[in-house]
Design a protein around this nucleic acid. Structure first.
Length: 271
DNA sequence: ATCGCCTCCTGCGCGC
DNA sequence: TGCGCGCAGGAGGCGA
């Protein structure tokens, strides 16, 4: 399940193959993703890619006349094939042929991802318009989280996973960051102290940065590789560890559902 | 404005 | 061994 570090690693992995290349053909094998791919996506053909950016978990492939907006959902991946004999796999829904001979493939078994098109003269896409700050910028700081949490009754874990508050914090790292900050996931956001907000912000940045650093070593897996691209197993303290001993205090890691999502925490380390 | 539930889909793991 | 069931999950959309 791609979290922000995986998406950023994907962006870095594909960027060198896409930048300054023109799209010589675009083949859609499956139009029905989370939302149907718009027919207007065909405008990409013969356009030159001028940048490959990321906003939250959205990858933005920009040309002069507009940009493709790609989301990997939870099972999506983007891969580069430089060997044209490599067969298309099941669930390779979109193929983008580039002028340098590379082929970009969008693979997504569960089809929770999306591929949308936005013309350059249109206002910011509604999916991108209301997004909160990037977690790794200075804009996301303690003061921001304090502001966002005051008088909020929703669980702090739900709040940090809300993309209007901050983008890119997924279910796994939400549990991990709250463990690192010593905060119970279910606590009302408004009851998290200023000092704890500062701590939580630092924990989120640390976890995401660590994971991106690890991803850097797997960049080559984005090209001509079998299996899934270089997603990485960061060493996790609580996620998926229900029933196991907490590595910090030996208490048993608990699991509960919060906002319809599995949540893991240590009742001793987190208050 | 805020909250919480629903939904999309397939692969996997479990129990029998 | 094989089958069927239920769960997992990002995040927008919607009803209350």
């Amino acid at each position: 399940m791609p979290e922000l570090p995986e998406v950023e690693t994907t962006r870095r992995g594909i960027e060198p193959y896409l930048l300054d290349q023109s799209i010589t053909s675009l083949t859609i094998h499956q139009w029905q993703l989370r939302w149907a791919i718009p027919k207007t996506i065909k405008q990409l053909k013969n356009q030159t890619i001028i940048s490959v950016d990321r906003r939250g978990k959205y990858i933005l492939i920009k040309t002069k006349i507009g940009q493709a907006i790609v989301h990997l959902g939870m099972s999506g991946s983007l891969r580069i094939c430089t060997d044209n004999s490599e067969p298309r796999r099941k669930h390779d829904h979109v193929e983008m042929q580039l002028s340098n001979g590379a082929l970009l493939r969008f693979h997504d078994p569960r089809r929770f991802g999306c591929l949308l098109w936005q013309k350059a003269d249109e206002p910011t896409h509604k999916l991108l318009f209301k997004l909160g700050p990037e977690p790794l910028t200075d804009e996301f700081d303690g003061a921001h989280l304090i502001r966002a949490t005051r008088k909020r009754k929703t669980a702090i874990k739900n709040l940090i996973m809300d993309s209007h508050v901050v983008v890119g914090v997924g279910n796994i790292y939400a549990s991990e960051a709250l463990f690192m900050a010593g905060i119970r996931p279910g606590r009302a956001a408004g009851r998290v102290s200023h000092a704890e907000c500062e701590k939580l912000v630092e924990a989120i940045k640390k976890i995401l940065n660590q994971s991106i650093d690890q991803g850097g070593t797997t960049l080559r897996d984005f090209v001509n590789s079998d299996g899934e691209p270089g997603y990485f197993k960061q060493s996790l303290f609580v996620y998926g560890k229900a029933g196991e001993d907490c590595q910090a205090c030996k208490a048993t890691i608990k699991q509960k559902v919060l906002g319809q999502r599995s949540t893991f925490y240590c009742t001793t380390c987190q208050r």
